[in-house]
Nucleic acid binder design. Structure first.
Lengths: 242, 242
DNA sequence: CGCAAACTTGATGGCCGTCAAGCAAAGTGG
DNA sequence: CCACTTTGCTTGACGGCCATCAAGTTTGCG
């Protein structure tokens, strides 16, 4: 049942990735009232402090969570790729404490909070899956705190590329050693606490050493072991099962 | 009932801080098998990757969560003060992805995971309170990501001091405009991604401008509005009710 | 084809790290 | 009670990583 490519099955597979869902829960997911929208690149999906009564599922494309400082600078908090559930925490909060925006043109499914709440009340396995999502998000936040606090530009960039590669691989979106890479250099900069000028120079340095190459909206990892070593990367925090 | 100073009542008050607990839930909390320990300063409580079958409640003193890089440098992820529940996420994970250590000598209560699980299964208000704790932790992580990524040393320091002051105030541990400040300059450094040398200079700068003074294990906020402005601080992420 | 957005590269400077030394405070043992 | 050690704080000199400013160049799109 979870073999088709429908949005429902993407969601069911994700929620059942750690512990298999009972058939009844899977059927309940298939009955969710999804509202599916295609959203252009660089559009806001969710506003900090705004109302929210739906959660969303990324079906296609990349999005990010961010916060703005009062002087207008931006800090990206997390990227989301297909399969991710970026704002599950909204189930427990009146309004989000961050903004969410598309990076690329994206296809997003919206699900009413009320339906997700009944789902998680009725099926403990699903409540458990929601906890798991929250825990992975928090662990990723912690990994970013370490990067931002204690790594230099090369290490930060390497670490982010490792993370994105493994997350994309987990949903089958890598191809050999390469992956789609829609992030602009300013996106890297806003995620890593750098300027786009310095991201540019750092990428050049990684390329010149034959570690990773970004070309034509794709990124190819030429030497995974070197990249891992530069980043001091440990994938455990992503809690990927395979 | 929640007026006495017992560990049970501290816990009951914390879990009921957003939504009042039913009397039965409060009674169940009073029946939890707490193991209370006093732990010296700078001792590990929890090891990254180690086993864990208890959650803890900070009854007195300060602790922190941290991660170590392979070269031995440390990044602090979060501080905990009395009333905090630092490792609730352990309920959903076999082993923690961070270490926890005392900052000062601390009194800590340990509660078996199994008891907390039955508590949260039986009382939805408590399950809700656990979610709330997780959400505040994640929101604090995000605030730190923004600080680490986009603020300079003065702003970072000001932001952390604002956070700690409000959290201590919420549990009645401030005194006028001052609070206990057991953090060493190396602790500030490890939390803010700086060196202790630079923390020293930055503290001096904040003091010379009459904004905040650290003296004798206490910190006095001389000009809250200036401190808030330097930090661009918005307390919303702490979700303090009063 | 023309405009806008993104990328690239150079020059310059500042924030903060590193190294080093001295000082202060607190605990320890004789 | 006082050398002695340890830990933390303070200050100076110097240098490097990265920000800033300022062009160009390339890419993408209508």
């Amino acid at each position: 049942m979870a073999s088709s490519k429908s949005p429902f099955c993407l969601l069911a597979r994700r929620l059942g990735s750690a512990a298999p869902l009972p058939v009844a829960a899977e059927r309940a997911i298939l009955g969710l009232p999804l509202i599916i929208r295609t959203i252009e690149a660089s559009r806001d999906i969710l506003y900090e402090g705004g109302p929210s009564d739906h959660c969303c599922v990324i079906l296609d494309g990349w999005t990010c969570c961010y916060q703005l400082l009062t002087d207008g600078r931006r800090q990206i908090l997390l990227f989301h790729v297909p399969g991710d559930l970026p704002d599950l925490q909204g189930l427990h909060l009146p309004s989000p404490d961050f903004g969410m925006a598309t990076v690329t043109r994206s296809i997003v499914a919206f699900v009413p909070h009320s339906d997700l709440r009944t789902l998680s009340d009725r099926y403990p396995t699903i409540a458990q899956a929601f906890w798991r999502e929250a825990i992975v998000t928090a662990a990723t936040h912690r990994a970013w705190i370490v990067s931002l606090g204690r790594r230099d530009a090369r290490q930060k960039l390497a670490h982010l590329i490792c993370e994105l590669y493994l997350r994309l691989e987990a949903v089958g979106l890598t191809d050999g050693r390469s992956m789609p890479m829609p992030l602009r250099q300013t996106d890297f900069a806003d995620a890593l606490g750098l300027t786009s000028v310095h991201v540019n120079r750092t990428l050049r340095s990684l390329r010149s050493q034959g570690i990773v190459d970004l070309y034509g909206r794709r990124s190819t990892i030429l030497d995974w072991e070197a990249l891992r070593a530069v980043a001091d990367f440990n994938p455990k925090y992503l809690h990927l099962t395979d």
